[in-house]
Design a protein around this nucleic acid. Structure first.
Length: 333
RNA sequence: AGGCCCGUAGCUCAACAGGAAGAGCACCGGACUCCAAAUCCGGGGGUUGGGGGUUCGAGUCCUCCCGGGCCUGCCA
């Protein structure tokens, strides 16, 4: 039996190339080798302020983006978290197995809490829901970035605690670390590319060419090579080039850089062209899907049905183990 | 349940005693630059959380509502 992979992605409304090269491209690769379950995690999205009128469209857009990027619903399960209510049920059970102190030490919570006027208990509890997402399917592999390792460690802790208290049920969860380095903001290359930094700080996968061109062209660089280390901005452009161009072009420009002959305009042209080479086919598929959002919804419905089947079966056993639920009165069956 | 404090531009905040809503950062445009950054020049931006009231005049005072923070009490 194939090992099972779970990963969640927030419905941010727009995938950027940092998401794409960092996570999504991995999703596509993993679906060939593993039994993959991918979830658009809307319950995570509501831990901070959100607009209920916009959320459904964002969820749908994220699904369409992922499909356009090559996520194949015949190979992987793609569904929306809230369509499988067992996620929140298990999260509650896990809440009771999670130490308050552990949660207060989560650096991502401290980070995010600073940015919020209203800090919800849900934001605090986020890592527990995340543990439930993974373990509900008894997934053993989770593709994550380094920033998520702490949360994954918590999930392992919760699983271990559950297993020792109520009986072996959950597997040991292992991270699959993406080998791609973080793509940085073009405008502020010391910071990771992110939508929340502002419009200039990310390049959307589905963004119009003219706009992508503008962002690449105005990307921060430097006054030319100073010592052996590339400046963050130039390194970031080379990173995008490496991720999207063939290695010959990369090597050529890298050589020019080392010999001090490289004009950044040329680098930027190359980055733009290579990047569009990757994005154009994705954008074309995305436009097709936009005309067939009904089809996207069907994919999500079918995905939810398959996810629910696994989730319900596991939940029955989990309830039995901890002694709750109607069926716990009839342990015989 | 009671008490106290707060809400002004995207962000941080200012506005004597009630007398023309401002600054810094961010953002946009231009100059400079191979492109950028830095710098310089220029620009847009606000129903002062919302309603009602007092007043010649309300960001400022009164009142209700919404939202947020802190404290005390009570409690399944």
């Amino acid at each position: 039996m194939k090992e099972r992979v779970f990963s969640g992605i927030q419905p941010t409304g727009e995938l950027h190339i940092g998401n794409y090269f960092g996570a999504v491209i991995n999703y596509i690769r993993l679906q060939e080798e593993y039994e993959c379950i991918y979830s658009i995690v809307d319950y995570h999205a509501i831990t901070v302020d959100h607009d209920p009128k916009l959320l459904p469209a964002k969820v749908l857009a994220m699904a369409a983006d992922l499909l356009a990027c090559g996520l194949d619903p015949d190979k992987a399960i793609l569904f929306v978290q809230s369509h499988v209510p067992e996620h929140t049920e298990l999260a509650w059970i896990f809440n009771c197995l999670t130490s308050f102190g552990d949660l207060t030490r989560m650096t991502q919570f401290k980070e995010k809490a600073k940015q919020q006027e209203f800090v919800s208990a849900g934001l605090f509890d986020y890592p527990v829901l995340q543990a439930a997402d993974i373990l509900l399917y008894r997934a053993s592999k989770v593709p994550v970035g380094e920033d998520q390792l702490q949360h994954l460690e918590l999930a392992r802790r919760i699983a271990r605690r559950f297993n020792s208290r109520f009986g072996e049920f959950f597997p040991e969860v292992e991270p699959i670390l993406s080998e791609a380095p973080r793509v940085m903001s073009p405008a502020e290359p010391t910071m990771k590319m992110s939508k929340s930094l502002g419009e200039k700080h990310y390049i959307g996968v589905m963004e119009p060419e003219a706009s992508i061109y503008e962002k690449v062209k105005t990307a921060v660089t430097d006054v030319g090579p100073r010592g052996p280390e590339m400046s963050p901005g130039v390194a970031n452009l080379f990173l995008i080039l490496k991720l999207s161009a063939d290695s010959r072009l990369y090597d050529e420009l890298e050589e020019e850089y080392r010999t001090g002959k490289l004009k950044y305009v040329r680098l930027k042209e190359a980055v733009f062209e290579s990047l569009m080479g990757v994005l154009r086919p994705i954008q074309a598929r995305r436009r097709e899907l936009e005309r067939d959002l009904g089809g996207v919804k069907q994919v999500l419905e079918a995905g939810a049905a398959r996810a629910r089947e696994i989730a319900q079966e596991n939940m029955r056993e989990i309830r039995r183990l901890i002694g709750v639920g109607l069926e716990s009165f009839n342990p015989g069956r």
